[in-house]
């Protein structure tokens, strides 16, 4: 085999592999599963790898989705993320309108109705949207369901949820360095 033949082989190999590479990157990216397998929570105290599948599957810890996730009042299978009501730019804020959390049912007017929610429903002081939970909910209504009246910052919500469950079941990490990559 002479030099020019080696050169030709290298060039042909490079061109073919380049095309294969482009096709693979463009057409076959790593698929994101419908239900997350693992989640990486990024935070200043060091990232946390959460084994979602292991927690949720029957072969793992078998925890129900609604034990951790919010859901619509009428539909337990319709899970809601924190960010659907508490927006990332204002994590402590309550929703700006009713429709951000609630859905219309058959007893309500369609969206083209001229009536506003506040025309029927007692809203916060002066007919404004509420600014705190207490403006709509009685403390016992919420706290009686194991929910707090206080709006959590996201890290507090996660800490409270993870650590309390681990302590209740006497399983899983509870110390900072056991979850966070320091």
């Amino acid at each position: 085999m002479n030099v020019s033949k080696d050169f030709k082989i290298a060039v042909i190999m490079a061109v073919i592999l380049f095309l294969v590479g482009i096709v693979c990157y463009a057409a076959f990216p790593v698929k994101t599963p419908e239900k997350p397998l693992r989640l990486m929570f990024k935070c200043k105290a060091g990232q946390v790898l959460f084994t979602h599948k292991k927690h949720a599957s029957d072969s793992g810890y078998g925890i129900s989705c609604t034990d951790c996730h919010h859901h619509n009042e009428d539909d337990e299978t319709s899970l809601m993320s924190c960010g659907e009501c508490h927006f990332a730019e204002e994590p402590m804020a309550v929703p700006k309108s009713c429709m951000e959390c609630h859905e219309l049912d058959e007893n309500h007017h369609e969206a083209d109705s001229e009536k506003a929610c506040a025309d029927c429903h007692q809203m916060g002081e002066g007919g404004k949207t509420p600014e705190t939970c207490n403006e709509c909910h009685e403390p016992e209504d919420i706290e009686g369901q194991g929910k707090s009246m206080k709006l959590h910052a996201r890290p507090d919500a996660f800490h409270s949820q993870c650590i309390s469950c681990h302590k209740d079941n006497d399983a899983g990490p509870v110390k900072c360095s056991e979850c966070h990559v320091m």
């Binding site: 030099v3 020019s4 033949k5 080696d6 050169f7 082989i9 290298a10 060039v11 190999m13 490079a14 061109v15 073919i16 592999l17 380049f18 294969v20 590479g21 482009i22 096709v23 693979c24 990157y25 076959f28």
Partner: peptide
Amino acid sequence: VGVIALSVSTAIFWELIMNKITSRTATIGN
């Protein structure tokens, strides 16, 4: 496969480009 194919091909191209810029004999054949 995508990572491998892109890595091998671009390594060959970079060496070929450098060979041309420095006016040296193409060494990608080795």
